[in-house]
Amino acid sequence: MNQEEIRNILKEVKDPEIPTISIVDLGIVTGIKLNGEDVHITLTPTFAGCPALKLMENMVKDRLDLVEEIGQVSVETSFETTWTTDMISEEGRKAIQQHGLAPPKRNCSNISMEVLEDTACPYCGSDDTSLKSPFGPTLCRSLHYCNNCRQAFEGFKPVG
């Protein structure tokens, strides 16, 4: 087993709230350490108050425990690497869109209402949209309305 193989296996572990995206494409797997047959995985939280932190640790452990070639599995959550939405892969952005969410804008360390307002509709692609609220049903989502296809939609909030 090498890091790449483990990374590929972890692509089967999906975000519990957005089941189209893997935790690898979400960018939260920040460390894969091998010590002989033993594996140590480090995850970084998307949001400090994310209720799925413990759940995702368990999902990673459960998946890797199924692999015969792997010995002991340990998983920790650490803030050492700060997650930003720029850590989401291209594939991950497509997966977010597939789930009906607008992918986050890139390079958003200076977030403003104007930046959030400028979000393309994930259904029809129109830029003629309005921001309804920077807070949505989960910590990572904002609420928008598309003036073109007249549908409410959610966006994945940029975090810089």
Binding site: F47, G49, S133, P134, F135
Partner: peptide
Amino acid sequence: LEEDIAFSSMAQDKLGQSEH
């Protein structure tokens, strides 16, 4: 409704931060 959600989301952030 949006404000209800906003304050609830911020509450969740703050509680998460306190835990850490």
